[in-house]
Amino acid sequence: MAQEQRTSVRPNRITELFGIEVPVVLGPFGGVSSVPLTAAVSDGGGLGSFGLYGYTAEAIHKTAGQLREATARPFALNLWVPDGSENTRLAQADFDRYVGVLRPYFDELGLPLPEMPDRYLPDFGEQVAATLEAGPAVVSFVFGVPAPEIIEEAHRRGIVVAATATTAAEAAALEAGGVDAVVATGMEAGGHRVSFLKPAEESLVGTFALVPQVRDAVKIPVIAAGGIADRRGYRAALALGADAVQVGTAFLATRESAAVPAYRAILKSPAAGETVLTRAFSGRLARGIPNRIIADLRDPSRIAPFPAQNWLTGRFRPEAAAQGNTELMSLWAGQGAPLIRHDSAADVLAELLAGESGL
């Protein structure tokens, strides 16, 4: 993006807090974050973000190193706050039953059935330690309030802390917990509903109802997320009191994304106009484009609890992506997908920032 485009945006609380030039944040994707896309958004003056769900400490250090090689500008690393469900152990019989439900997909893709692992996720403490050692400009969290000692250590290292809320009450809890900025994410957003005070089904507030409520509830900067894909959403979010916007789906459809071609194609197809909330892929509520997996697993009794379900489907989703089989992939997408018009991160940024001029 040209320098004159970036500097035409007046600094605000978010740009000054994050050390960026334009108030645009890349949504952190679990599983499909890419170094090129994160770097492209950061180089364009925004805050590139990289999702670290499931990453070991070694993988976090490696990814942070790759990001530093790709961009000299600020970027964010994102972690999921554990709620205790991560430690759930399934009985072997239950594990086998859930594997049996998914067996047709493994067979279709030519994959062996998985055996029960010792654990489904890396240790959160090790993830946090590696992330803070990596020293990103921003560390962001979803699914809860990070512990005080995490925030204190981040601040000691000069790292800004952001976290996500789906209700005004969650935003207030985050501010009370010491975070520096809150992402107000409406139910329109793609991917997981990251509610933590009440069940996700009871926290489905739309972005443009949520943003002003959060702005009234907290004094820290507010980032609007969910359904924002063009200059109109950008302009509306800022008019309602947001200091910045976070955009996921529009960037996910760009060539810098880690989404495979078949995924990017469906994001730009009429199919993206209909998204649903489902627990089929992970055991947690998430918004995506309907496909066979979602249709097959409507019965909650056929879905393992999180994180076991996410681990199990994670054994075949990469192969489905490699084969371009969108019926067996998690096609996370927000309700703004029909507004996608651009193939590069620079063009998405330019489209969003056109909202500054009121075009």
Results as ranks from 00 to 15, higher is better:
Q3V: 15
R6T: 14
R6A: 15
T7G: 05
F18C: 03
I20V: 15
L26K: 10
P28W: 00
V32C: 07
T38N: 11
A39H: 02
S42N: 05
I60H: 07
L67I: 14
T71W: 03
N78E: 01
N78Y: 07
Y105E: 15
P114E: 08
D118R: 12
R119K: 12
Y120R: 00
T131F: 04
P136F: 07
V138N: 02
F141T: 05
V142T: 12
I150P: 04
I151M: 08
H155G: 06
V161C: 07
A163E: 05
A168I: 01
A168K: 04
A169Q: 14
E170I: 04
L174F: 10
H192K: 04
H192L: 09
F196L: 05
V205F: 02
V214L: 03
K219A: 13
P221R: 06
G233A: 12
R235V: 07
A236I: 00
A237F: 07
A237N: 07
A239S: 14
L240H: 04
A242T: 04
Q246E: 13
G248H: 01
G248N: 12
T249M: 06
F251I: 07
S257W: 02
P261W: 06
A262F: 11
A262H: 07
I266R: 15
P270W: 09
R287K: 08
G288H: 11
R292I: 08
A304G: 09
N310L: 03
L312P: 11
E327N: 12
L328C: 11
S330G: 14
V348Y: 08
L353K: 01
E356A: 01
G358P: 11
